[in-house]
Design a protein around this nucleic acid. Sequence first.
DNA 1: AATCCACGGGAAGTGCCGGAAT
DNA 2: ATTCCGGCACTTCCCGTGGATT
Length: 399
Amino acid sequence: MSDADSDELFSREDLIFAKKELLEINHLPTHGRIVGRDDEISALANALNPALFNQSPSNVLLYGKTGTGKSLCAKHVSRRLVDEADEEGVTVGVAYVDCAQDSTETQAVQTIASTTNTPDTDISIPDKGISTSTYYKRLWRILDDLYDVVVIILDEIDKLENDDILMQLSRAGEAGKLHNCKLGVIGISNKIKYKDRMDERVKSSLCEREFVFPPYDANQLRAIMEARSDAFKQGVLEPGTIPLAAAQAAQEHGDARKAIDILRYAGELAQAENAERVREEYVKKARERAENDRFRELIRGATPHSKYALQALAILSLDNPDVDAFRTSRVYEVYEQVCRQMDSDPLSTRRVRDLLREQAFLDVIEQARQSGGSAEGSYTEHRLLEDPEVVKKVLVTEE
DNA sequence: AATCCACGGGAAGTGCCGGAAT
DNA sequence: ATTCCGGCACTTCCCGTGGATT
């Protein structure tokens, strides 16, 4: 814009990135090791191990916050299983379903059936047009015809609209739907509370084993980022950049995806300013942006009044830096003020209680039941899990 | 073919109230 | 004794569907 060679509208050469695709969200590390998940990988392998002897693998539920490597490990282990079982003469199939995309029973079955199907069969799986039960019938046939064992990975399982498909999958064997093929289900959720919402019978069969994925610490994040530093040109990254970005990401949520985002944003900022190197100041700005994005994503789809309630909690947190949890009645008072500012009629206390509970399920806030002591009643306290500054900024700029 | 309308289902929201907690 | 949580029944509003009418 202000440079001497400003007649150059487009730059001819990328000064910062060499292989930017390494930093794209969906990029999976193909070669090299998965950082810091050895225990989880071997536990998962252990649960699936019976498949090697043509026996039923255990059903598993994986918990952990976003960006802790759940999907990655599930995919990795199941792929290894297919290879090793092949050497043993056992045919293993894997179906991966992203339940955020296929959130209904029909869509999910359709995806499973069409990914496990091969042209060798005379079974066709149309995109649409047949009933759910027909999909199931064809799926059972495919599985029996082609595989000894099938592992079904249900990612973001909490996004499913109902438990019907879990019901079908968990009972497929005993209900006589499958004759030769054994079924194993890996459920992946980033909501610890998801299990509470599950049907009791599904829960007992699907959660034979549970593993919790802890957030990455700063060292692990640093290793993850360094494994992708080839995305940048030689010498562009200052030596302190990655450790700084890792430290910041670890401090916030230990989310590897976000850590990579920070790195990419920092590069883009450097690019936008025609800098030759990625300096630390860019990392700081990038972190702010990544954090805003993350929170924006978290509250996407929330109703206006949900946001007002969150805003009220953020205001309380900012006004009282020494306290971090507030009882419902105080939140409601501030919420009423927010509504007045927004020129909107406040909802009832009953409704706001529910809205806050929804936010707690989404891990935006945390609730704890408290008691005031003798003759003082009991109540719930709400604590914001996000940086109040970020919450306020995002919520205010949304309007 | 375009318009209208009745209908059902689901989400949002309210009020009531028994009961948990200390 | 006190606070307020959370289940329940109920209302209101919106939206997609599908058949009837113009």
